[in-house]
Design a protein around this nucleic acid. Sequence first.
DNA 1: GTAATTCCTAAACCCAACTTTAGGTCAAGC
DNA 2: GCTTGACCTAAAGTTGGGTTTAGGAATTAC
Lengths: 154, 154
Amino acid sequence: MASELSIGAVAKRTGLAVSAIRYYEAQGLIMSNRNAGGQRRFERSVIRRLAFIQISQQFGFTLDQIRGELEALPASRTPTAEDWAQIGTGMRAELDRQIETLTKLRDNLDGCIGCGCLSLDKCALYNPADQAAERGAGPRYLVGDKPPRTAARS
Amino acid sequence: MASELSIGAVAKRTGLAVSAIRYYEAQGLIMSNRNAGGQRRFERSVIRRLAFIQISQQFGFTLDQIRGELEALPASRTPTAEDWAQIGTGMRAELDRQIETLTKLRDNLDGCIGCGCLSLDKCALYNPADQAAERGAGPRYLVGDKPPRTAARS
DNA sequence: GTAATTCCTAAACCCAACTTTAGGTCAAGC
DNA sequence: GCTTGACCTAAAGTTGGGTTTAGGAATTAC
């Protein structure tokens, strides 16, 4: 059994499309060697890397952010369980922050339901200036949306 | 003091770009009348509508979803505070669901940090089918300081 | 009355995260 | 040895939520 995997084998193991795997390589998230015929050959550890990418995307990280996280992994050796656990800790912190933000938004919304206002002047929810205060002009978007890969959204 | 507002006046009142307001109209989220010269004239109630759109976007709703929510408003009269409060209640429920989902994901991640696995076979986090089933519709993607950009996957 | 704004439309462009397409090359099974 | 399927690259297309640009027309300010 070959210790290096073809792109098709990696796709099967991860559930990703072949095109997505090539895209991740082009974006510098994973690496591959080439065989004599110029085809990609992946080390087995790339599978765990791709699993990490998929999980991180569920948490809403962009590929840019994920690349940043992955840079914490040792390049010189195959990452150990502890290496991965370290990264997981960072993700946990980020996730806590997200939950807190959403909870705050919800509490603000509760106030708005009470008064039925959604008023530009009074409503705590609608306050672009506050939002932007931390980071320059324009409304600051806190929450985004990513459709599940399985379903088309209406 | 016209009771109808020009697009520039609406932009100033809401903090939105003129181009965004035109875009929302093209998408059927708001409506306008035209004056003799063909310029848009907005009823004042459009401002509250736009406030709702901005708040909903903070929660991660897509414009499609927001249009759906707005359809619950009476078309024949200017919406009252109660009309808006009704919609707010629906948003609150959605938001509760999001927080619960994120919390579950975090708890799963805690398990993964413990074992350091991120394993395709064993890890509860890595299970695309389950996630899709559990998450349902609605926002669940938080980004730091950038607008949400959704990827098409079909 | 004219200059400066503001407004109009249509179309092109932007980003992320991919997929699809076109035109080939490589590898494996019989 | 040949056919089928997996693989290659580069470029174009897709989606959502807009912005930018081009070329005018309307409105407002002085």
